[in-house]
C-alpha cells in the first residue's frame, strides 16, 4: 500500500517536472513548410513585386507569461530566392543584389523582445545581409498556438520589417520608389 502510494507520488512528480518551466524552445517548421519568408519591393513605384526565400531554418524561445524573455533566430539561404521568374532570380542571386556565392546566408538574431499588448511584440535584433550587420525592428504578432493533432505543441507568429537595400550594400539601384524592401516572416514552431 505504502509502496503503491510512493510510486504514484513519483509518477505525479515526474509529470510536474516535465511541464516546461519558463520559456520553451521551438523549432521553426520549415521541414513541413508551415513557415515562409516573403519579401516585397515596389516595381517602379507602380506595384508590389513579391518574392520569397524557399530555404531557411530557425528556432525561437517563447514564454507566454514572460514575452520579454523570448528570443528568435533565423537563417536564410540566399540562393533560394524565388520570384517565379528564372532570369530575375538569376539576377537577384548575382553580385548586383544578394551575391549568393560570397554571401550564402542572411541571418537574424534577436536582441530584445518587447511586448506591445494585444498579442503583439516588437523584436529588435541584428540582421546580417551581404556581410553587413544592422539592427532592425520586427513588428510581430501572435497568430495562435497549442496542441497539434499529432502529439506536438505548436506556436505561430507573423513578423514584418523593412530596410533600405543600399544600407546593406546592395549595389543595384531600382529607382527612387524601390529603395526599400519589406520582409515578412510567417513562422510556426514545434516545441522541441
Amino acid at each position: 500500500m505504502t509502496l503503491r502510494f510512493a510510486s504514484l507520488a513519483a509518477l505525479a512528480l515526474s509529470f510536474v517536472m516535465s511541464v516546461p518551466a519558463g520559456a520553451a524552445d521551438y523549432e521553426i517548421d520549415s521541414k513541413g513548410a508551415h513557415a515562409s519568408i516573403n519579401f516585397r519591393v515596389k516595381h517602379l513605384g507602380y506595384s508590389w513585386l513579391v518574392g520569397r526565400f524557399d530555404t531557411f531554418t530557425g528556432s525561437f524561445s517563447y514564454d507566454n507569461k514572460a514575452i520579454d524573455k523570448s528570443s528568435v533566430k533565423v537563417e536564410i539561404d540566399t540562393a533560394s530566392v524565388n520570384t517565379n521568374h528564372a532570369e530575375r532570380d538569376k539576377h537577384l542571386r548575382s553580385a548586383d543584389f544578394l551575391d549568393v556565392v560570397k554571401f550564402p546566408k542572411v541571418t537574424f538574431v534577436s536582441k530584445s523582445v518587447t511586448p506591445a499588448g494585444d498579442g503583439k511584440a516588437t523584436i529588435v535584433g541584428d540582421l546580417t545581409l551581404r556581410g553587413v550587420t544592422k539592427e532592425v525592428s520586427i513588428a510581430a504578432v501572435g497568430i495562435g498556438g497549442g496542441d497539434d493533432p499529432w502529439g506536438g505543441v505548436r506556436q505561430g507568429f507573423e513578423g514584418t520589417t523593412k530596410f533600405t537595400m543600399a544600407d546593406f550594400g546592395i549595389p543595384k539601384d531600382l529607382g527612387p520608389a524601390s529603395k526599400e524592401v519589406e520582409l515578412t516572416l510567417h513562422v510556426e514552431g514545434i516545441l522541441k
Partner: peptide
C-alpha cells in the same frame, strides 16, 4: 536554359 528553367 537561362530563360526557361522556371517554366516560362
Amino acid at each position: 536554359l537561362i530563360s526557361t528553367p522556371g517554366g516560362r
